[in-house]
Every structure is written in C-alpha cells, then in structure tokens.
Amino acid sequence: MTPEERIAKMGLVLPEAAGAVANYVPWAISGNVVMTSGNLPWRDGKLAYAGKIGRELSGEDGYRSCQLSCLNAIAQIRQAVGELSKVKRIVRLEGTMWVDESFKEHPKCLNGASDLINEAFGDKGQHTRMIYTNPVMPFDCTSLVVLYAEI
C-alpha cells in the first residue's frame, strides 16, 4: 500500500497543500531532503483547533490537533515530490504546542503526529522528534508541525 492509501484506510483525507500565510515558502528541497514550514491544524481553509491545551482544549483535542497539523505537513511533502512513495524516510518531526502552564502531557499530544507518520509510512516513518511550546501561537492555533523527509 502507498502512504496515501494507508492514510485513507485510517479514515483521514489528505488535503490539498495550504499556501503560505506570510513571506515564506511552504516547503523547500535541499539535496535529498524536503523540509516543510510550520503547518497549522487547517481544515477547509479554517483553523480546526484554537486555544490552549489544558485550558480551552483537552489533551485528546491536542492529539487530534497535532494529527491534523501533521496531515497538512504531509500534504506539503506530497506537493513537493508528487507522490508520497518517493519518501525514503521521515527523518524528523518538530511539534510546537500552545499549552496551559499546568499541562504536562505534551508527548501524548504529539503522538497524534507520530502515530500518523508511523501508520502512513511504516518503517520509513521511524523519525526523531522535538517538542516545543510557545507562550503565544499564530492565530491562537493549538499546534504547529514541521517535517523533514529524505527523498
């Protein structure tokens, strides 16, 4: 199965890649690596998740937000290379979340992105990752995901 087929089997729809919201490109290729810019939890051109995890949103909402942000990052990779079967490996996932200072379950939320990557890409999805938090997020979004993929 292709990554696109695995994503569909999960009941998810790989969206069209979103455009930039400021003065940058959504993705860049350097050598054999494609790097995405930060991807927010967009659905049909609107933020699906806004607010702080642990305050306005639950940890489960944070998981789904990270999953959706990652789905948008995967769409950027597909736009960059044409089809996801060209990905040799997802090298790195970086997730930034907007969380209440009392919330400590960041890793479980970012698993929304990691679980998607691992399911969609199988062994090629085994990645490193880094979690960040921001005191303020663009558009009050809950999550932002960046992916690095070897092609």
Rank of each mutant, 00 (worst) to 15 (best):
M1I: 11
P3L: 01
A8V: 04
G11K: 12
L12I: 10
V13Q: 14
V13R: 11
L14K: 06
P15S: 04
E16V: 08
A17L: 13
A17G: 11
G19F: 13
A20P: 11
A20K: 07
V21D: 15
V21P: 13
A22K: 11
N23I: 14
V25P: 09
V25S: 10
P26Y: 00
P26W: 00
W27I: 01
A28K: 11
I29P: 13
I29K: 15
I29C: 13
N32T: 14
V33C: 03
V34F: 00
M35D: 14
T36V: 05
S37I: 03
S37L: 03
G38H: 06
L40T: 10
L40P: 12
P41F: 07
R43G: 15
D44C: 08
D44Q: 13
G45S: 11
G45P: 07
A48P: 06
A50G: 08
A50S: 15
I53Y: 02
I53A: 08
G54V: 03
E56M: 05
E56D: 08
E56P: 08
L57T: 02
E60N: 15
Y63A: 01
R64F: 15
L68V: 03
S69Y: 03
L71S: 06
A75G: 09
Q76C: 03
I77T: 00
A80W: 06
S85L: 04
K86T: 00
V87E: 04
K88S: 08
I90H: 03
V91S: 14
L93E: 09
E94F: 08
G95H: 07
M97W: 06
M97P: 06
W98S: 07
V99L: 02
V99K: 08
V99Q: 04
E101P: 10
E101T: 09
S102C: 07
K104I: 11
E105M: 12
C109W: 00
C109L: 00
C109R: 02
N111L: 13
G112S: 05
G112C: 05
S114V: 12
D115V: 06
D115Y: 09
L116P: 02
E119V: 15
F121Y: 06
D123L: 10
G125M: 04
Q126R: 14
H127E: 12
T128G: 15
T128P: 13
I131C: 11
Y132G: 04
T133P: 05
T133C: 04
N134W: 13
N134D: 14
P135G: 12
P135F: 10
V136R: 12
M137I: 07
C141S: 12
T142K: 09
T142D: 01
V145R: 05
Y148E: 11
